[in-house]
Design a protein around this nucleic acid. Structure first.
Lengths: 143, 143
DNA sequence: TATTTTCTTAGAATTATTCTAATTATTACT
DNA sequence: AGTAATAATTAGAATAATTCTAAGAAAATA
């Protein structure tokens, strides 16, 4: 797939800001993540990326995902002992993991909750990230 | 170390409730977790457990930690691509991970914030756990 | 006490991720 | 444009955390 001009610019600027080069692979991995807005693992990204770029390697996919995360273009999402997942949604949100279906759903959060969470920190502490992970049963999996 | 009567009873009841046996190893692993109230990895628990029970195996430590977690006696704590840690604090709290010192600190949260988080879920969703992980710099590591 | 069930153990296996060293692509410099 | 310097990609090996396996030990049940 092609990156829209908007995302292409966003990618280039973000990479430039962090002193890194824009490459075909980084661009392609970014487009793969944006295309299907779910929460794929590195392996899944690799599989999707390979179908259009057969020579890309798993190591490169890991490198690209790392670079994109560092540049703030995507987020990493972690659940108990599961492989890391990657998320293109940069808005302030939490993740819900359904233990029945394995589905991961974004949960939007109000600014107020986030502010309260940040203000729960002791004096002198500062947080870059707050990761919020729900674990339970989603609507489809309920009795 | 010896488990106090209170904790011994709590352990036995919790195991019974989930149809599991009370064994020397489970008791010992529980006591090790309670003794030093930090957030050890399975390896660290193994090291501590071995000093008093030299024959215990790493697999058993993993099994015991799993059993204790399932029984609700301890909690698992996860941070990005780090080994799972175990926490004896059962009160509603979040975890702060300092990326400088690696220190993990419990952050107490008000019921109100927790309630707001739970009510952010869509209709039909229900959460067993909400894990909240801060990532930043702690008081000691600040400029 | 005998029998069944559940735990523990040691070590092998698995899985996600990172590392290494060689090759290739991109940028910077003439 | 051509060359040197730098950074990224590649394949495969290495690592680290965790899980699995099969045999033996302990606990519960009959």
């Amino acid at each position: 797939m092609q990156l829209t001009t908007e995302y292409k610019e966003r990618l280039d600027h973000a990479l430039e800001r962090s002193g890194q080069r824009s490459t075909k692979q980084r661009e392609h991995v970014f487009s793969v993540i944006l295309e299907k807005r779910d929460h794929p693992t590195a392996d899944e990204v690799y599989a999707r990326a390979k179908s259009e770029m057969p020579t890309i390697s798993l190591a490169t996919v890991y490198n690209c995902l790392e670079t994109l995360s560092e540049s703030g273009l995507i987020r990493q999402v972690n659940f108990d002992r599961e492989p890391t997942r990657y998320c293109p949604n940069l808005t302030q949100h939490a993740h819900f993991y359904c233990r029945e279906s394995g589905e991961i759903v974004d949960i939007e959060l109000s600014d107020s909750v986030i502010d309260q969470l940040k203000s729960a920190l002791p004096e002198g502490y500062s947080a870059q990230h707050v990761e919020i992970a729900y674990n339970g049963k989603c609507g489809d999996c309920h009795d």
